[in-house]
Write a protein that binds this DNA or RNA. Structure first.
Length: 156
DNA sequence: GCCAACGTTGGC
DNA sequence: GCCAACGTTGGC
């Protein structure tokens, strides 16, 4: 039996890669690469499945918050930037025969009318326990519960 | 630009 | 295996 759909929040600094960059990408799809954190890596490698919903989150920008929706279109496979000495994401310790880092492919679904700010998320009782609203929440790939996802879908 | 919170590294 | 020092993230 097929596993039911899961939901995720993925952070990106829009100065590096924004929701508009995703929309204007070829096939509206990008490699979600450069993740160099083990917990986030585990999600990419083991848990993100084709069809899973993604909240595209803009960090380190004014305003910070959810900028759009995307969908996982390819499951975890080795992040090739780790093996490229010219890449900013190069990791000399990563062995191509036993890759450390993984990426997925993510496709644009829609952009929010306006960014759903972190401040606004914090004002919604149903999202009180959501990971991204917690203080010091640095994980760049976070699981989102089904109720959280559906509450946020109403805000687009 | 500041700095709190967090993750990683490395000496012991 | 502990933990201090260091580097990074990310909200403000």
């Amino acid at each position: 039996m097929a596993k039911s759909k899961s939901f995720w929040l993925m952070k990106s600094e829009p100065s590096v890669f924004s929701i508009d960059d995703l929309k204007s990408s070829k096939n509206r799809t990008t490699y979600w690469e450069g993740v160099r954190n083990y917990q986030a890596r585990n999600f990419l490698r083991d848990h993100l499945k084709v069809g899973d919903g993604v909240l595209f989150y803009h960090s380190n920008e004014d305003p910070v918050g959810i900028a759009g929706e995307a969908v996982v279109v390819k499951e975890g496979y080795p992040d090739l930037t780790a093996f490229d000495p010219k890449s900013t994401y190069f990791d000399p310790k990563s062995d191509p025969r036993k890759p450390t880092w993984f990426r997925v492919d993510v496709k644009f679904v829609r952009k929010c009318g306006e960014v759903i700010t972190l401040k606004r998320l914090r004002e919604i009782p149903a999202l009180k326990k959501m990971m991204v609203v917690q203080k010091g929440s640095r994980l760049s790939i976070q699981p989102v519960t089904s109720p959280e996802w559906h509450a946020i879908m109403k805000l687009f």
